[in-house]
Amino acid sequence: MKKDSIAYVVVFTFVICAVFVGVLAIANESTKAAASANKEFALQSAVLGAFGISYTDKADASSKYKSSVNETVSAGGRAWKARLDNQDYSAVEAAGPGLWGTITVILAASPDGERVRGIRLVSQNETPGLGGRIEETWFLGQYEGEKSAAGKIAMKAGAESSGKADPDKENSRVEGISGATRTSQAFGDLVESALAKIKAMGGK
């Protein structure tokens, strides 16, 4: 068969695609278990983190998740309940638009939504180094123990943001990230919608 004949080109292209795609399919299949275990662990560690339950490793996280957290379902997706320090807390998974893509968080708070327990990110696609900094502990840590004013926590974004963590837990406001005004605002809205979800769940 001549190398430039149509038959050769068609057969060659077909074979090349079949071989490479076949190898990829095998690689994907064989790593599926590991990848889904990683995903599971990521979710569990986010839930534990939001509740403020510490764990040492993967196995510890899994056992603590089973022993101290109850998975329930709320109207808008997955939800969790836990009793910590003699108080009930609820957590929900909430997703909302960021600047580039969907931001998904797990937020834990008191059942009336008045006091945040903690918040963790599940996924985000914001600009690395700018909006992507919503993953940083100083930023998420601002929410830990923060009081909400009737389900609202103000986000100081844009010109009024100092880019430094707000240490006051009673003023119902957090500092946004300088250079990432839109992401900060989107994150603030997302937190409020998550608090509303928790309130809607109530003490049930």
Binding site: F20, V23, L24, A27, T31, A34, A35
Partner: peptide, 14 residues
């Protein structure tokens, strides 16, 4: 793209 996707799969799993 074969190699890039392979890298992605490996990163995701390990």
């Amino acid at each position: 793209s074969f190699y890039v996707i392979l890298i992605d799969i490996i990163l995701r799993a390990y």
